[in-house]
Design a binder for these strands. Structure first.
Length: 555
RNA sequence: UGCCCGAUAGUAUAAUGGUAGUACGUCAGAUUUUGGUUCUGAUUGUCUUGGUUCGAAUCCAGGUCGGGCAACCA
């Protein structure tokens, strides 16, 4: 307990900065572009940014880097805010890069004034053609040496809408021979005659991310700009802007993005899945999005705990999906109430239990909780639903469930012994017959009989019907993105199995969207918030229980 | 073949010149009215070659392998 948890490399940097006094206040930010939904990889970034500020008494802003009106939308802004809040974080200030458009425009004018930026008439293709390659230097545009005055008036004409998309851009004048491609006169502003989700038609020129992002950090006085590895090569450019403009010297630190097995983690790919209707939307429970995981039944605690467990480093990584599943099981095992649900029902007839007799037994809500989490009523009768695969005509080795002659405990009820069964013409077992031991009633068992197996059940006359959705991994291979083929060819065709007529116990009738349960011996489930209606229960399986028997059979 | 970054069990992550540890996974056992949970034990690792040092996962040099960089995307 007293064991000190070692610092991650970002915490070490922060502590070092604080100790040396190079930074006195920790100020971070989470800077999503509102062009898609947040996924579990963003959760890592969110936990890092908010966690760092929180740990060292600083603050964290939420800032939308909305510099490309073509792809951005308020729908995404709303979902991002909802997801960050749901994860349990509160931002200090809410900002938008678009709030800084005037300021950024003035920065651009200042750069032109210092002879450090110029208007280029070349097309995108022409610029690319003379940009060189990583091994060859680029060539100067014929417009590179325009006078400051000409640049100033051209840039203001760009702003005024005199030119069409692509006709002109504003470029920083840096070094066309730089081995870093981002320093070869990067574009600062481009013309896009497109309405912006916040500024509407006020602007027709928009700053590029590289110009806007770093300067937005400076404006907000972000001390530590945490981002993913691919932006490392952009850092010299950000630092160059800061130096030339004399703005607040935010320092950037990069970490390796999260990858998870059996899924994809790029907004582009996730968007593709949504647009091509390979899933039912951003919040499809199979998606690694925050909204998908939420609908699937994941808790914010489990996701935060996961982010803590995976740590943070600069090396490429791919985390086992099993760890995420471990985190939600760990949480739900302690907190979810137990219920009995039969997914594939067959009848169990107790031949020595009086027909028409009923009694109400007690089922513990959660054995992990104090006083078992209280109890719920379980109606019992001579005719029950049990799981079809809990009965076998011939018992294999190590079979602890029902088979002719075998005894099992009915969870929270009696021990029964199988006396026979009936089959239909197709050879399918339709009814299992048994006799119960009256002295073996749960909690007051004086029978002296011990059994290896316990199965779940529901009294047929008191059962409700429900739809249950069983989800499996979205992809068949561990890393769909690393293969040569299109990632979509690896989609798991069996990632969703819909069971339309599961039998559920009466206590589940009043389940509310977002309620989470453990269906005994089956897994953790939550009531679906979108598909459930008055009189129709739809449950999503969050994750199955560990299944030692399934493993035994496979091995 | 330019520049930048990285390399510790299967997967992650510690050890900050001094006994390579932890988690998940896997395997075995105990407990169990969930083949769940819990508990116990086992398993497996410093990319490579040199160098510095009493001592190297750690510092230095060469190599190998992996990732990133040439959008008017972010």
């Amino acid at each position: 307990m007293s064991e000190e948890k070692s610092l991650n490399f970002l915490e070490e940097i922060v502590e070092d900065n604080l100790a040396k006094g190079t930074v006195t206040e920790i100020h971070t930010r989470f800077p999503p572009e509102p062009n898609g939904y947040l996924h579990i990889g963003h959760a890592k970034s969110i936990c890092l940014n908010f966690g760092l500020a929180d740990k060292y008494g600083g603050k964290t802003n939420l800032r939308f880097d909305d510099t490309n009106p073509v792809t951005e939308d308020t729908e995404y802004v709303d979902s991002i805010k909802e997801d960050v809040k749901w994860l349990g974080f509160n931002w200090e200030e809410e900002h938008y890069a678009s709030d800084y458009f005037v300021q950024l425009y003035e920065f651009a004018l200042a750069m032109i004034g210092k002879g450090l930026a110029y208007v280029d008439d070349l097309s995108a293709e022409e610029i690319a053609a003379i940009k060189g390659t990583p091994t060859e230097p680029g060539k100067a545009s014929p417009f590179r040496n325009r006078s400051i005055d000409e640049n100033l008036s051209l840039f203001s004409e760009m702003k005024a809408g005199k030119y069409n998309d692509g006709e002109k851009v504003l470029r920083a004048k840096i070094d066309l021979a730089s081995p870093n491609m981002h320093m070869r006169d990067p574009i600062m502003y481009r013309i896009k005659k497109v309405s912006h989700h916040r500024t509407g038609d006020a602007w027709c020129i928009y700053p590029m991310y590289d110009f806007a992002h770093g300067q937005s950090d400076s404006i907000e006085q972000i001390s530590h700009s945490i981002c993913t590895l691919e932006f490392e090569v952009h850092k010299p450019l950000y630092n160059w802007y800061i130096e030339q403009l004399g703005t607040f010297p935010s320092k950037q630190f990069e970490f390796a993005r999260l990858n998870l097995t059996y899924t994809v983690m790029s907004k582009r790919k996730l968007l593709q899945l949504v647009q091509e209707k390979l899933v039912d939307g951003w919040d499809d429970p199979r998606m690694p999005t925050i909204s998908g995981l939420r609908r699937r039944g994941y808790t914010p605690e489990s996701i935060r705990n996961f982010c803590d467990k995976i740590g943070v480093q600069r090396r490429e990584n791919i985390i086992d999906m099993g760890l995420l599943e471990f985190c939600i099981r760990e949480d739900l095992n302690a907190t979810a109430q137990r219920r009995m649900v039969v997914l594939d029902p067959i009848k169990l007839i107790i031949t020595n239990y009086p027909q028409g007799k009923t009694e109400v037994l007690k089922g513990e809500n959660n054995p992990e909780e104090e006083n078992h989490g209280g109890y719920r009523d379980l109606p019992f009768s001579n005719e029950l639903w049990i799981e079809a695969d809990d009965f076998l005509e011939e018992a294999p080795k190590k079979w602890f469930r029902l088979a002719p002659g075998m005894k099992v405990r009915l969870k929270s009820a009696y021990i029964v012994q199988c006396t026979g069964y009936t089959k239909n013409e197709a050879g399918k077992v339709t009814e299992v017959h048994c006799e119960y031991i009256p002295e073996s009633k749960s909690g007051e068992d004086s029978s002296g009989v011990s059994v290896k197996g316990t199965i779940h059940w529901i009294s047929t006359d008191k059962s409700e019907s429900a739809e249950v959705r069983l989800y499996d991994r979205l992809f068949k291979v561990e890393n769909p993105s690393s293969e040569d083929e299109d990632f979509k060819t690896f989609i798991n065709p069996n990632s969703l199995e819909i069971i339309t007529s599961a039998k559920v116990e009466p206590a589940l009738k009043d389940a509310k969207p977002g309620d989470r349960f453990q269906f005994i011996r089956k897994g953790y489930f939550t009531l679906d918030s979108m598909l459930s209606k008055e009189g129709k229960l739809v449950f999503n399986r969050t994750v199955g229980l560990k299944d030692a028997w399934a493993k035994e059979q496979k091995g």
